[in-house]
Computed example of a mutant assay.
Amino acid sequence: MHSIEIRQTGPTSGRLKNSITLELISSERLVAVTIWESGESEVITARIGSADDPSVSLAQLRTVNDVAELLTRVAMTMSEDEV
């Protein structure tokens, strides 16, 4: 099992669009998840050491279930490197 480092930025306050960002970093992959209080979200996924452009996914989170589904997808992405 690979170790995963998690970094949190925020939550911000006093901005036009307050947000929180979680970065999940393994030896193989970086995933950055930003969620704004408006419900907007952005997930950036990149392979470490790859010249490929990172993938970017945008979504509107309307419910707590939407947040849970987003985090489940992120966890699945991070576990893709497990063998």
Rank of each mutant, 00 (worst) to 15 (best):
H2A: 09
I4N: 11
I4H: 00
I4M: 08
E5T: 07
I6P: 03
I6A: 15
R7K: 13
R7A: 14
Q8M: 15
T9Q: 10
G10F: 14
G10W: 12
T12M: 10
T12R: 09
S13W: 14
G14Q: 13
R15A: 15
L16E: 07
L16C: 14
L16Y: 10
N18K: 12
S19Q: 11
S19T: 14
I20F: 04
I20G: 15
T21W: 01
T21Y: 03
L22Q: 05
E23C: 03
L24E: 05
L24G: 03
L24N: 07
I25N: 09
I25E: 07
I25H: 06
I25F: 09
S26Y: 14
S26F: 04
S27K: 10
S27E: 15
S27Q: 09
E28Y: 02
R29W: 01
R29K: 15
R29M: 12
L30A: 05
L30W: 00
L30H: 02
A32K: 09
V33T: 12
V33W: 01
T34V: 03
I35G: 03
I35N: 02
W36E: 13
W36H: 10
W36S: 11
E37A: 11
E37I: 06
E37G: 10
S38V: 09
G39A: 10
G39W: 03
E40A: 09
E40I: 02
E40N: 11
S41V: 01
S41A: 15
S41E: 02
V43Q: 01
I44R: 05
T45D: 02
T45C: 03
A46C: 08
R47F: 00
I48R: 08
I48H: 00
G49D: 13
S50R: 00
A51Y: 04
D53I: 03
D53W: 02
D53L: 03
P54V: 04
S55K: 08
S55E: 11
V56T: 15
V56Y: 08
V56W: 03
S57P: 02
L58C: 06
Q60E: 12
L61A: 06
R62Q: 14
R62G: 08
R62V: 06
T63L: 14
V64I: 15
V64F: 15
V64R: 06
V64S: 05
N65G: 13
N65C: 13
N65R: 05
D66I: 07
D66H: 12
V67L: 09
V67T: 07
V67M: 15
V67R: 08
A68Q: 08
A68P: 04
A68N: 05
E69I: 11
E69Q: 10
L70G: 04
L71D: 02
L71I: 09
L71Q: 00
L71A: 12
L71P: 03
L71H: 08
T72A: 13
T72M: 04
T72P: 01
R73A: 05
R73K: 12
R73F: 13
V74Y: 02
V74W: 01
M76T: 07
T77Q: 02
T77C: 09
M78H: 03
S79N: 09
S79Y: 05
E80Y: 00
E80T: 04
E80L: 12
E82I: 10
E82M: 11
